[in-house]
């Protein structure tokens, strides 16, 4: 979760947004984190580079919890 927060905050900083203090499993990537499809693509490649997991390979991912589950291979 910490590493994911780091990646998301890095992207937020690049876009001029304030960093988040914490992530919650229930947070929606589009509604709560305000990520559009191109930003989600960028998040995907950064996560893949860090964890070797392609989060969108098997379909749409909606929440932070779903990303964590993919990273942890659940």
């Amino acid at each position: 979760m910490d590493q994911l927060l780091l990646i998301i905050n890095e992207m937020r900083e690049e876009d001029g947004n304030a960093p988040l203090e914490m992530l919650e499993d229930s947070m929606d990537l589009r509604d709560d984190l305000v990520l559009d499809s191109l930003m989600l693509a960028e998040l995907t490649v950064r996560i893949e580079s860090e964890f070797n997991v392609d989060i969108f390979e098997d379909g749409i991912v909606q929440t932070v919890g779903e990303i964590i589950a993919k990273i942890e291979g659940k």
């Binding site: 693509a41 960028e42 995907t44 490649v45 950064r46 893949e48 580079s49």
Partner: peptide, 10 residues
């Protein structure tokens, strides 16, 4: 193209 674009994004 998919992987080239992903590499460019990264």
């Amino acid at each position: 193209s998919k992987y080239a674009i992903r590499d460019m994004l990264l």
